[in-house]
Design a protein around this nucleic acid. Structure first.
Lengths: 200, 200, 200, 200
DNA sequence: CCGTAAACGAGACGGTACGTCCTGTCTTCTA
DNA sequence: TAGAAGACAGGACGTACCGTCTCGTTTACGG
């Protein structure tokens, strides 16, 4: 991998500052949630100038996106045994992440930010929502191909159902996003749509 | 429900003030969305003192709840022909209401308010979410009873799916909550879960 | 004297807040001079919201004008014995006031503010400079009338000389604005311009 | 004065940078006055790094001093005909310089800087104020010697009067520092203090 | 002709203050 | 007591400069 940054003029951004901001923001949002996440508070907690935050992120929302990404391992390839197991795997990836209250709060906050900023909504879609949907989409398409799911299924609608249930419980539920929830989702989908499948 | 307050002493609340506040709030949230809906702005627009708002509503959220209720006709009894038609009817009630951008914005705002106020979340659940779910719940139970839906179905999960899809599209979608969306939902549920049914 | 304020609507300005601001400002400017006199610092010291300052004064300069006026007794009528004594009296009024370092610093600050604000310059002229000049102007005109001063004298120029010397020493001198300075001024004017005068 | 720096190691200061800074500063202060004269703005306008300014001048004030000196021709020897003409000559030197709004603004700015920096006040005295006073002082002493002025005159006080009038009008007047002003000063002094003098 | 050392443009950095907006509470006068 | 009006303490906003710092690059001079 070659030098990607073409050596911009001037003093380079300090990586420690970057880290300090993300850490402070995560701590704050974990402890107090969205309301506590003022730029002022983040700066104070990180021991950093407000300007150093604005220099990196144009809005609270884009900071939140990076905060969500930070430390997020790659989605992980599917074991691809069968539809049901794959579906469960993707669901558990999601619920597991949200188990950490910091990430749950980040997601809630992203939705808030998206409400008054169309740009933000697109960004959330692109960086947060769509990657998860894409993983799930592959699972469903595989299921259709193998005959485990009926071919005529409206894939995008199923995605809306499943992720809708997740977001809905996150935003308006009572913290029910446990692993058990993932299992319930899988069972419900299975009962509704899955067909017996002869693997050979 | 009769007048519960036994004619307290002093000047009675002015009904016109009540109306002016709701109207101003609706106008503001229709035109500019959540950000513009400051108590200050509502008061100014309504030509009313801030105190007159705080006197009636303890928070922006509870004002929003009343604002959502305001002018909302009763759910309307089900025609109850069959599962599919009933489902569509309930869905269309929902999508139709959201067609008015003011109501869409109110719902979005309620979600925002709910994020930093547990009390609020309960109120939204009780007054906004649950009534819709209850209507839909009856539809599903009917379907189970008539054999149109498999008896083992996790009803609450189905509700999560359907309303999750609605909220998800409202909050993070691109204004796709058209009547066509309602039809897609119905068709997807039908394809997945509905069984052929001999109505007699 | 009748009610001068026509009972404006709303909560009246709190006189204590007014006082607290002026006191805080005077303390700050006495202790640290112009640089320390930020609106933020005044508000903090007065235990007052910044807005409460901005509500009363549109700029730091206009606050300073009021601060100079605050507690300033009326100029005091001239004893009017003769030119020399009257001149000395007016000079001593000026130097005495400036003896308090707070007032000296206020005057310096007013000059600073006036440099980047034409409106401010006019205000300083009108409220601070001109009243003093007017008192001195009368002294000089009296002197001309009584024959103690030559009639052809350019009064305004003399005023420029005398007050110029005061301001010059205030701004660029080394704190030499003692009573002795007042005496030197009087003696110099006397030696230059005053004529022997037969008081009867 | 010979080259005092013994050819230090490293890259020598760039004379063009020096010029660019002074030019940019003069342009800015001419066009917008003191407020616009931020180090940041000067650097940007000169196309120069902020550090290159701080390397040469320890404060905005010392830059302003150099800026005032820059392009200032030597005071010019007195023709020394008589007191009145000499006085007028010195006065006109002063008013002429101030005619250029850039220089007027520089002087105003120097006074501002001097208010919060005792070091600066001394520097202004030494480099700007005193040289002018010295020229004028010689004029007055000549006048005393030749008998055109009464010998008992407080020379320093006269200097305070004359230069005080100049500074006062510069800082708080309305741009009245015309040549006419110089003539008025001379006439006033003449009328007050000058005695008929037989030049032989 | 090569290494050392300062100058230079660029821009990051911790700070401080700015003037504005809104919050929820309060205090006045009028109805 | 309600209501219009608006003051109040407080907190955050996003911006502008301060004076210092750290980069990569350039330009002299002395070994």
């Amino acid at each position: 991998m070659s030098k990607s940054t073409p050596a911009r003029a001037g003093r380079p951004r300090d990586e420690n500052v970057h880290r300090a901001i993300l850490d402070a923001a995560r701590d704050l949002i974990r402890e107090e949630g969205y309301i506590a996440l003022s730029i002022e508070a983040v700066a104070a907690r990180a021991g950093v100038a407000k300007q150093s935050i604005y220099r990196r992120w144009s809005s609270k929302g884009s900071l939140l996106v990076d905060l969500y990404m930070d430390g997020l391992e790659a989605p992980g390839a599917l074991a691809s045994h069968n539809f049901k197991d794959d579906l469960l795997a993707v669901m558990l990836q999601t619920t597991k992440r949200v188990q950490d209250i910091a990430f749950a709060n980040i997601l809630k906050s992203l939705v808030i930010e998206a409400q008054s900023d169309a740009e933000m909504r697109k960004l959330v879609q692109l960086r947060i929502v769509e990657p998860r949907r894409e993983a799930m989409r592959r699972v469903i398409e595989n299921g259709k191909q193998s005959g485990e799911l009926p071919g005529g299924l409206d894939t995008e609608m199923i995605l809306d159902f499943v992720f809708g249930a997740v977001w809905f419980n996150l935003l308006l539920g009572e913290g029910r996003l446990t692993n058990k929830f993932a299992h319930r989702v899988v069972k419900a989908i299975e009962l509704m749509a899955a067909r017996e499948h002869d693997a050979r």
